[in-house]
């Protein structure tokens, strides 16, 4: 942990060398998620509701997903840009250092400009929390927190999967974006609006719905079964196969060296 803070301070120092770039990137990140918000706003000013979900409920859902995504992105950005680490040989350096490889990749990149999204998410969340009409009892607050953490777990897992695949090929990995960027884009709306098959896919295969749809139902009071509140915990199990894939990738790297 102390070492991570050290890495963090170096990243901070580096990024402060390029203040304009930092601020502009922050602004860009902020705007691109603001555009997503505008998308929702304009759609709802035309349609008022979708499949029984109101505007402020959807905003709440959007804010939670965006928050989980941006936190995951800040934390594990090193995995997101792993193809660079592989192709410029930096992974060799990681391998000759006496620390866990995963930790080093994690710490190799912390982009604070990604906070642009987080700021956006916070603002929307602050707006949606009171206007959603939810009475914020303790279980509901807990659900909200679980949702964010579950989301961080799933998105981080997906970034790790992406990085692990980089060991085998760096071509054609953009399909992972369907789940990371796509999860963020389409997770604006509860996954049920996309139909049953999509919901099943995002429940059992890429468990985005486990932190988004099911606990959300509990949050807005559509179900009262407290089990729904705990589904985000299942998200953490998703990290296991991701970790194994990573191990597999490292051993492949060791046998081919490229």
């Amino acid at each position: 942990m102390r070492l991570y803070l050290k890495y963090l301070s170096i990243h901070l120092k580096s990024q402060m060398q390029y203040k304009t770039s930092f601020l502009l990137t922050l602004l860009g990140q902020f705007w691109s998620s603001f555009a997503m918000f505008l998308g929702i706003y304009f759609m709802f000013s035309r349609f008022q509701s979708v499949e029984g979900y109101t505007y402020s409920q959807v905003l709440l859902c959007f804010a939670i997903v965006l928050m989980a995504f941006s936190l995951a992105e800040c934390l594990v950005r090193g995995f997101d840009t792993f193809s660079v680490i592989i192709s410029n040989g930096e992974f060799d350096r990681i391998m000759v250092r006496p620390r866990n490889e995963m930790f080093q990749v994690l710490a190799s990149k912390v982009e604070l400009s990604r906070l642009g999204r987080l700021i956006q998410a916070t603002i929307i969340l602050l707006y949606a929390l009171p206007s959603s009409g939810i009475v914020w009892t303790f279980p509901k607050i807990l659900t909200l927190i679980l949702m964010v953490f579950g989301g961080i777990a799933v998105f981080s897992g997906l970034f790790v999967v992406y990085a692990s695949l980089c060991f085998f090929t760096i071509e054609g990995l953009e399909f992972i974006n369907i789940f990371t960027d796509g999860g963020r884009e389409f997770g604006r709306y509860p996954f049920s609006i996309y139909g049953n098959n999509v919901l099943k896919f995002f429940t059992f295969i890429v468990p985005l719905a486990l932190f988004q749809y099911y606990p959300f139902l509990y949050l807005i009071g559509k179900v009262t079964n407290p089990l729904y509140m705990l589904t985000p915990i299942l998200c953490f199990f998703f990290l296991l196969p991701c970790y194994f894939l990573w191990r597999l990738g490292v051993s492949h790297y060791k046998s081919t060296g490229s």
């Binding site: 102390r2 070492l3 050290k6 890495y7 170096i10 120092k13 580096s14 060398q17 390029y18 410029n88 040989g89 930096e90 060799d92 350096r93 000759v96 250092r97 006496p98 620390r99």
Partner: peptide, 29 residues
């Protein structure tokens, strides 16, 4: 072991070298 890869740098590009050294100190305990 210590490894020097001729054309690749292990120093952080944008911070004073001593900061990189401090980090290496922590990495290698």
């Amino acid at each position: 072991i210590g490894v020097v890869f001729g054309q690749r740098s292990q120093l952080w590009w944008d911070v004073p070298v001593i900061d990189s050294f401090e980090l290496i100190k922590d990495i290698y305990k």
